[in-house]
Design a protein around this nucleic acid. Structure first.
Length: 425
RNA sequence: GUGGUCGUAGCUCAGCUGGUAGAGCACUCGGUUGUGGUCCGAGAUGUCGCGGGUUCGAGCCCCGUCGAUCACCCCA
């Protein structure tokens, strides 16, 4: 139909839906700022090696989902499939960890994975994430989870839950993995499943097939293999979450797709989305920095899917807050009035009001219809009578009431105007 | 990457066993002197995703392709 179309599987937002996207993204970012996180703006492409080493070559993300290409200098470049590795690279490269710890940063932007598209899963998608680097402290784990939890609640979401677990430190995990592999080797699995188990035995816990689920029901449980230190920290995280009033459930078979996670891991799941139900997830990553050639600092962070949050908001019927509406729509109905409208609009905009007006040669009725569709709270008709008398009636589009105001001093009486705004819609 | 479903006006869809395309919503204008949202009337709109094939003739059949969607894999 169209000669050109967007590449497969990208998410796009345009009016009116783009406002929901903006609202979601800004709300998520605001939650990070409330906890003292500061912006880190990084490239969307990096040296391919970064992701191979950081995310792990055995992961699906690296082995089959990366957009990798050679640039003109013959370097292997990859569009970032996730955010943490890039942040680590920047921290190491620019010695951002030299000051007070932890380093707390947030980021927002596009990420890329060459997967088969599906509702809630795109080849270019958007994430807001935070990283807290340099200290391993259960309080920080809880802070990170709280930022995400607060963000979802600020959006107005209700139909979601938080699942947490602990993957343990390296020692606990190795001990467990050994046991798990031992158990899995006793099972009768098809080749494909066995291959997946070989790469990461934990994956089998995530299998959707009933026969696999029942086979795995007798498998050893990771949480029971935590050493004393890991177990104590996990206990601490749980009790702090409870104190903060953040509801959660322990999911002892939770699986994270990226290799670098250790210790606390968590996932926010929305229940109105279908198969792609994770709206945000993250966890602690000991050893990632060292693996990338930096000092041996721990860190914890999360990534929240902006696209999925938009879907979640739509699923829950969440309405945009009032601040996304236009304040005033001007309807000029004569040539002179059009000139005046432009000036009035500009004066009011300088005062911070959102103002639009009817352009072209619209009839009064047409102009009012445009005002109505604009969603503006107020409208103001400007014609020759108004020009002559300097008086116009400011109409509340919701209630239909109007008051007479002086046009020439309108912008000087913003307070009065804002009072009118209380006639909410 | 694997499998299922689907692709007709801006949107949601109808189109009988193949005979050169329709509805609702939205949009534009109007319903006698300057106030929208309801109601009434009028009007505009489609290479029926794209390419090929079968046929006298295809939106309807066949093949391919692109895209969407659902599930798996995986994950935000």
């Amino acid at each position: 139909m169209h000669p050109l179309q967007a590449p497969k599987g990208v998410s796009e937002y345009f009016p009116d839906r783009s406002q929901t996207f903006e609202y979601v993204r800004e709300t998520l970012i605001e939650s990070a700022k409330l906890s003292g996180y500061r912006l880190i703006e990084l490239p969307v492409f990096e040296d391919t090696e970064l992701f191979k080493r950081g995310v792990g070559e055995s992961t699906d993300v690296v082995s089959k989902e990366m957009y990798t290409f050679e640039d003109r200098g013959g370097r292997s470049i990859t569009l970032r499939p996730e955010g943490t590795a890039g942040v680590m690279r920047a921290v190491i490269e620019h010695n951002l960890d030299r000051g007070q710890l932890p380093v707390k940063v947030w980021y927002s932007g596009a990420f890329f994975r060459a997967e088969r598209p599906q509702a809630g899963r795109y080849r270019q998608f958007y994430q807001v994430g935070i990283e807290s680097i340099g200290l391993a402290d259960p309080e920080i784990d809880v802070e990170v989870i709280a930022v995400a939890d607060r963000a979802f609640k600020a959006l107005g979401l209700k139909n979601f839950t938080l699942e947490i677990t602990s993957l343990g430190d390296r020692e606990s995990r190795n001990r467990y993995t050994l046991e798990l592999r031992k158990y899995i080797s006793t099972l009768d699995l098809d080749d494909e499943t066995a291959r997946r188990a070989e790469i990461n035995p934990l994956r089998l816990f995530d299998d959707k097939r009933e026969e696999i689920k029942s086979l795995m029901s007798g498998a050893p449980i990771l949480l029971e293999y935590l050493n004393e230190n890991s177990a104590r920290e996990f206990e601490r995280v749980q009790s702090l979450l409870t104190k903060l009033g953040i509801a959660f459930s322990v999911n002892n078979r939770m699986v994270r797709g990226l290799d670098y996670y250790t210790g606390t891991a968590f996932e926010f799941v929305h229940h109105g989305l279908g198969a792609q139900s994770g709206i945000g997830g993250g966890g602690r990553y000991d050893g990632l920095m060292a693996q990338l050639g930096g000092s041996d600092l721990s860190g914890i962070g999360f990534g929240i899917g902006v696209d999925r949050c938009v879907l979640a908001c739509e699923a829950e019927g969440i309405l945009l807050p009032d601040s996304y509406l236009l304040d005033l729509f001007l309807v000029p109905i004569s040539v002179q009035a059009k000139g005046l409208a432009l000036i009035v609009a500009e004066d009011l905009r300088k005062e911070g009001l959102r103002v639009d007006l009817a352009y072209g040669d619209r009839s009064l009725k047409g102009g009012m219809k445009a005002a109505d569709k604009s969603g503006a709270r107020f409208s103001l008709v400007l014609g020759d009578d108004e020009l002559a008398s300097d008086l116009a009636s400011l109409k509340n589009m919701k209630t239909g009431e109007s008051i007479s105001i002086k046009i020439s001093t309108l912008h000087e009486n913003i307070a009065q105007f804002f009072q009118m705004k209380t006639g909410d819609r």
